[in-house]
Design a protein around this nucleic acid. Sequence first.
RNA 1: GCGCUCGUAGCUCAGUUGGAUAGAGCAACUGCCUUCUAAGCAGUCGGUCGUGGGUUCGACUCCCGCCGAGCGCGCCA
Length: 645
Amino acid sequence: MGADLSRCASVFLPFYPCPPYPSVVKSFPVLPHKQIELKLQAAVRAVLPDADVSAVLVRPCPDPKFGDYQSNALMSLAKQRKLNPRQLATDTLAKLDVNEWCETVEIAGAGFLNFRLKVSVLTQTLEAAARGEHLFFDKASQSKTVVVDFSSPNVAKPMHVGHIRSTGIGDALQRTLRLLGHRVISDNHIGDWGTQFGMLICGYKHLLDVAAFKRSPVDELVRLYKKITEQIQKEESEAETAAWAKNPNDIAVDIEARDVGSKTVNECRYELVLLQRGWPENVAIWKEMIALSQKQFDAIYGRLGVKFDVTLGESFYNPWLGEVVASLLARGIARESEGAVGVFSDGALPPKEDPFLVNRDGEWVADPALVRKSDGGFNYMTTDLATIDYRLKTWAPDEIVYVVDDRQGPHFKKLFIAFTRWQPDAAGKVKLVHVGFGKILGDDGRPFKTRSGDTVKLGDLLDEAEERAFKIVSEKNPELPEAQRREIARVIGLGAVKYADLLPNRQSDYIFNWDKMLALQGNTAPYLQYAYARIKSIFRKLENPESRIQNPELKPAAPEELALARHLLNFGITLEAVAEELRPNYLCNYLYDLASHFSRFFENCPVLKADDAATRDSRLALCDLTARVLKQGLETLGIETVEQM
RNA sequence: GCGCUCGUAGCUCAGUUGGAUAGAGCAACUGCCUUCUAAGCAGUCGGUCGUGGGUUCGACUCCCGCCGAGCGCGCCA
């Protein structure tokens, strides 16, 4: 890769289509809690003109007996300023006029403000939603551009269970951000470059089973990789044994012998060099491997309904890597050490927080981020630096989000600091975020494998999920035609798997369990889908479905109706929290609560057989709104719904 | 050794700027299908939030010590 393509990256950038900026119509917030919040912030400013009111928030009450919404911001504000919290609350209340939306505001406890929504406001908000004016969330007041980097499988390897987390979380995040009106570029940074291609090409040239390769290319590549690895190990240990026999007293000899003793290792290195220098035969083989792997990735993404705006693998950045290292050297960010080039600590941070230092036996020693190996090859740190540079120049994002395993935390810490030192101005304009997640473990607490010790392929997992769901669907609804049962099973099975992965806090490891992952009871996707299907069933039994919900009047009166209605209004708060903290599980829990509220309503409040027409129409409208939020919420998690199940 | 993450009910996990009596699912037990889908609802049982201190009007949440688990720590990604 000798050509100097890289003096000014932007000149050479190929064109990749990416989503346009969404048109954001700035309007008054549709949700009452937001309007109360704005009023409250104004009141606080009136009392404390220099206060930062961005943390003055209005949240749902944990217990309805306190009211609908609360703010506890005044207590922390009072604490910071050593004021009496109740006095501050009283003063703020004097400046606060929320009569338009609330009953009398109460000061409670140490200084909580409790707001109780007027039923008329609740009703108006619901009716506006029923007319299609909103769905309980506001678009972001400021649209951001966010690059979401997720999934990133490796070429020549099958996607396995380990990929669900990055893929599922990343997809849910991109969907959430888009829903809130942000401009998202989802990028699949696939692993299509690296030393393993030396081995793969070597295997391809000598050991390829053409028929097997045609049948299942990735499986054959995995076999080749294993075969070559075994061969190398065998040759190395033979060389080592021979060397020991010859020279039993020389401790160093075995290491050297291993290194030069394997014919295959040298062949692999040679093939890698040929590839790196652009030898046509090797490049063609490499490209074929990528194309065939991509086909398999696409099959999985198709099933999962995951879409990427761009797929720019590691190799895409090859032309810039030399320039990156040269630039780092020129600016004194990196230096040479033992033949390699690395970014070292600049001493700006205390040793404990400095990712470029590591403590060994009480001494802080250098732990550099290598950007060029002593053999001249580049490291993934180099690629990642080039990638940030490219993304900034191409899309000018406000944020780049990496949905990657927590174990790579130290790498990202180094990467972000290295980039900031390299390009301080550019770095100041972007927020770089590592969205880490825990491991999937087996029952034994060790990384999850099949009984035979292999990793579980993602495709097999999805098959199993659909199969299990099909059995249940067939038990529950034997009268449905098979094609429909298959389709229901597909939606239920995939939904169960995705939801089970999104529900736990992403940071924690979780123990994989088939029954749990494919469970169809309790806090699971099928429970939410079931609530949706029950609503749809009501509408199927209605004579004139559309005519009844054109411009309905909402009269929530029963406790179950009111609780359901109030919960609908919290959809937006939840979506914002997901986008802010990049945690899709908040949405899972919101939707589970929504479905629970609906189930209670469904048990206690007859809809079609309501006492009078007005109540029936009001309840129908409430059902319709619940269905719309459930569908939208599930869709935002990447989960489909069915009309009947 | 050093660093990071974590430790909440028998099991698997939530717990939204530090906030009001710590929640759910599974498992166990008890009721509810001639009324819109029982993949459901109602209820019982079950926790000194690893442990000992500290900060605070208030701590599962923040700080420190200890115990226990997992992960990471120069030329793989």
